[in-house]
């Protein structure tokens, strides 16, 4: 199917929209352009990157341990995505490093929405590479523009990020079981946000999803 490349490039361009705001936030938080780019190239996980620069922006050098811990905690979900993608991709030896780096929300969401193993592989690689390219180019653009951009919320970029997650989960919501799972995770994340540290509500949402799936089968 030729729909996969179109979807992949479309998602890459959309993530590019908020990569601009990441780049700008990075340099206004006090990172150099190089350090901001290193985050997009090496960390390559939006939520973790925003958390890292967010903590550094408010706490400076003294906050570095907290910044690293926040980024790490928000990255846990990529481990679950990797577990899901490992048998699909079947990467041998050292090439696992490549698939690991591209294992993010977008690549996993597009892959798991496909019907066959070969389409899952194409969905993963097309989306992973597309997002990587747009994410890094637009981070650079944002870092160069810096604080000329102003508050990303003025451009509705926070809404863009929320809508992107909705768009990624949308194809899976055709099943009533996944509708229930999605709703339960949504409610749990909101119910716990003010009582547990950042990063944990999303994991609790994932836990609820796993529990419903596990017990629903019995």
């Amino acid at each position: 199917m030729n729909r996969i490349p179109v979807v992949a490039v479309s998602i890459g361009m959309a993530t590019g929209i908020y990569a601009v705001s990441f780049g700008a936030l990075g340099v206004t938080a006090g990172l150099s352009i190089l350090e901001t780019m290193l985050l997009s190239l090496l960390m390559f996980s939006g939520a973790s990157q925003f958390a890292f620069v967010g903590v550094v922006a408010t706490g400076g050098m003294a906050a570095i341990p907290t910044a690293i811990a926040s980024a790490w905690l928000l990255g846990v979900r990529n481990g679950f995505y990797a577990l899901r993608m490992a048998p699909v991709l079947g990467m041998p030896g050292i090439s696992k490093l490549l698939s690991a780096q591209l294992t993010i929300d977008e690549s996993t969401a597009v892959a798991t929405a496909q019907g066959s193993q070969s389409d899952e592989q194409r969905g993963f690689w097309w989306t992973g590479v597309s997002v990587f390219i747009f994410w890094n180019l637009m981070t650079l653009a944002g870092a160069l523009l810096g604080d000329q951009i102003g508050d990303p919320a003025n451009y509705g970029l926070d809404s863009a990020a929320a809508a992107a997650f909705l768009g990624l989960v949308w194809p899976r919501l055709s099943s009533s079981k996944f509708k229930l799972i999605g709703l339960a995770a949504f409610v749990v994340a909101l119910a716990t946000i003010s009582i547990v540290p950042a990063g944990i509500p999303v994991l609790l949402g994932a836990l609820v999803a796993a529990v419903i799936q596990y017990w629903g089968k019995r």
Partner: peptide, 22 residues
Amino acid sequence: REIADAITVGLLSSLIAIQGFT
């Protein structure tokens, strides 16, 4: 694999909640 799929849906749905409503 079924549980991993459910977790993916759960993670993305939680992210909508956090990014959209907090």
